[in-house]
Design a protein around this nucleic acid. Structure first.
Lengths: 231, 231
DNA sequence: CCGCTGAATTTTGAATACAATTCCGGAAAG
DNA sequence: CTTTCCGGAATTGTATTCAAAATTCAGCGG
């Protein structure tokens, strides 16, 4: 059998995987994000244990973890399947994400540095350029970086973790990613106002703006979350 | 109320067949909340399996779930222990909770009914009475009900679940629960303003107020969460 | 007295074994 | 032809076993 337990601490190579179930959970996350396992797909333990070359114990632990994260759902005596997100649940998640980003904006105003604001400005301008060039991937990439920069500037790891977990639950290919010129010009204007408010350190106003900003481009952001994982 | 990972029962089937690991997770949650297992306390698998009369497999699955929720932390090759919350992490959690409540307030303005607002008014008045009578438990109970009512009025289960999970991570007996008269009168005034804004359906303003309201009584709320579990 | 060493014991991580439920296919009845 | 009911196979839930790491503690030397 493939009993060769290999996961010793390998010097120089990334993070030493302490638990088999963590590694398995990561791999299943990738399978879901890459689309190889689609929503509603049943998890077959035998298939995955053979694929990963492990026993059922760590696999089942990984399943429990992913179910707690909301990526899988458990069916009593019938195993688990990839969680599917209903339209209403997606709406709810987007509202929560909007709230988390609003909170991040509010907090970021407390301690963000001028250099960080400048970096956001750079990304914003690059985003505009990408849009004008029709470079959709570049547009989303820079847009994403802006929002991540604000999240990072909040200096709140609890917030960032919840945000990342929620973002990760949004599957890819759920919404098409195109936005109208109206949506785009509004988004750009809002970004510019965000930068102003960051400079002015007006957390309360920024929070309100962020919430509205996310609401204004729900579908676009949903698509962005879905595809950004690959990059 | 012990809420575990809620596995939905298929419609039509009357008997809810629970998972052993869910039951175990609930019991460990209770042990932590009741204070029987204090932060930093190590989890001894042999001890708990004997106590619960089960094998190590479901126990270990429960441990993974609780670790994912943030209630336990895993120590490689050394098992798990009850997670302890540092001061900075508690600060971070309270900011996130403030943001979640702000979001709830914003959303509640969309669909809250007059009857729900009236119920909040009733609780608010009872809360004032309890305070004047020196009934601290009653005060916290009604205060809590008000915030839960707003959360429920948000009609957002994703939001409510995250809120509940975060609240649940705040241990008891971490802060003393007394607040000064100044804090109290301010809280009452804020509650009254909250009711006004709910009636006016002014979500944006309510969000700002909620965030400030929670910030203004961080320690009190932390204590409230900690003790409310018993009731 | 102290700390160090190393073997015995305990405890954890992972694999395997066993038990119970569900799934699936075919035969029989309507 | 459809439905229902059985029985075996497959899959899941739980217990047990095996292996590796950590902990304990007696013996040793400084």
């Amino acid at each position: 059998m493939c009993r060769g337990t290999m996961n010793k601490i390998e010097p120089g190579i990334g993070i030493s995987r302490r638990y088999l179930h963590d590694e398995v959970a990561d791999r299943i996350r990738d399978l879901i994000r890459s689309g190889e396992m689609e929503p509603k797909a049943r998890i077959n333990e035998g298939e995955l244990t053979e694929r990963f070359g492990i026993s059922r114990t760590p696999l089942r632990e990984a399943i429990k973890i992913l179910a707690t994260e909301g990526l899988l759902e458990l069916l009593p005596n019938r195993g688990a399947r990839v969680a599917s997100i209903s339209d209403t649940e997606l709406e709810e998640m987007m509202e929560v994400i909007a709230g988390l980003e609003a909170t991040a904006g509010d907090l970021a105003c407390r301690t963000i540095t001028a250099a960080e604001v400048d970096a956001i400005v750079v990304d914003h301008e690059a985003m505009v350029v990408a849009w004008k060039a029709g470079d959709e991937a570049g547009y989303f990439s820079h847009n994403r970086r802006i929002h991540e920069a604000i999240m990072a500037a909040s200096r709140n790891t609890v917030l960032a973790n919840i945000y990342e977990s929620l973002s990760g639950r949004i599957q890819r290919s759920r919404y098409s990613a195109h936005q109208t010129t109206d949506q785009w010009s509004r988004a750009v204007a809002e970004h510019e106002r965000m930068i102003e408010l960051l400079r002015a350190r007006d957390g309360a106003a920024l929070a309100v703006l962020m919430r509205e900003h996310i609401r204004g481009k729900k579908s676009v952001i949903a698509a962005n979350y879905g595809t950004a994982e690959v990059a």
